[in-house]
Amino acid sequence: MQSIVFIAYLVLGLFQLAAVMAGLEDWVGLHWIIAAPLALFIAYMPLIGTVIGMFGAVTAWHWSWLEAGGLFFGPFLVIAVIAMGAGVLENFSNRS
């Protein structure tokens, strides 16, 4: 199970990195050789990386803002739902 989660996390990170790179290429007009290492640095800045990545997904990949938001905020929502579900199940198991 851990290997599946690791692979999914790696694939998600590569998509987010590609979106940041596409944003840099489209917005600033950088060549991919320059945009790739710069995207590696920018992608780890939470707010800046997310904004540029969402911009890249919308402008370069022609995604909607909702789809771009799902790419960057979707995993957070899934984890929040799982955590709330676990809390509810724990609450019900403590009552009996």
Rank of each mutant, 00 (worst) to 15 (best):
P37K: 07
H62N: 13
G69E: 06
V78G: 11
S64I: 01
I42Q: 06
I42A: 05
L38Q: 02
A43I: 01
F41H: 04
A36Q: 03
P37I: 00
P75G: 15
M45P: 04
G70Q: 05
M45K: 10
L47W: 08
L66G: 14
M54S: 07
L77A: 15
L40E: 04
H62D: 12
W61N: 11
I42D: 09
G53I: 00
V58E: 05
S64W: 01
A60E: 05
G53K: 03
A35Q: 05
G70E: 03
I52P: 02
I52G: 10
F72D: 06
A43C: 06
L40T: 08
A57E: 01
L71F: 12
V51F: 05
W65V: 15
M45Y: 09
M45V: 13
L66A: 15
W65N: 14
H62C: 09
E67N: 14
L66Q: 14
A60R: 10
G56C: 09
L66P: 13
L66K: 10
I34D: 11
W63D: 12
V51E: 05
L40Y: 09
W65C: 12
A39M: 03
G56W: 01
W32M: 11
P75M: 13
G49N: 01
F73I: 12
F76G: 15
G70F: 05
V78L: 13
F73C: 14
L77N: 01
M54V: 03
W65T: 14
A60I: 00
I33L: 13
P37T: 04
G53T: 02
A60T: 02
F76D: 15
V58P: 10
A68R: 02
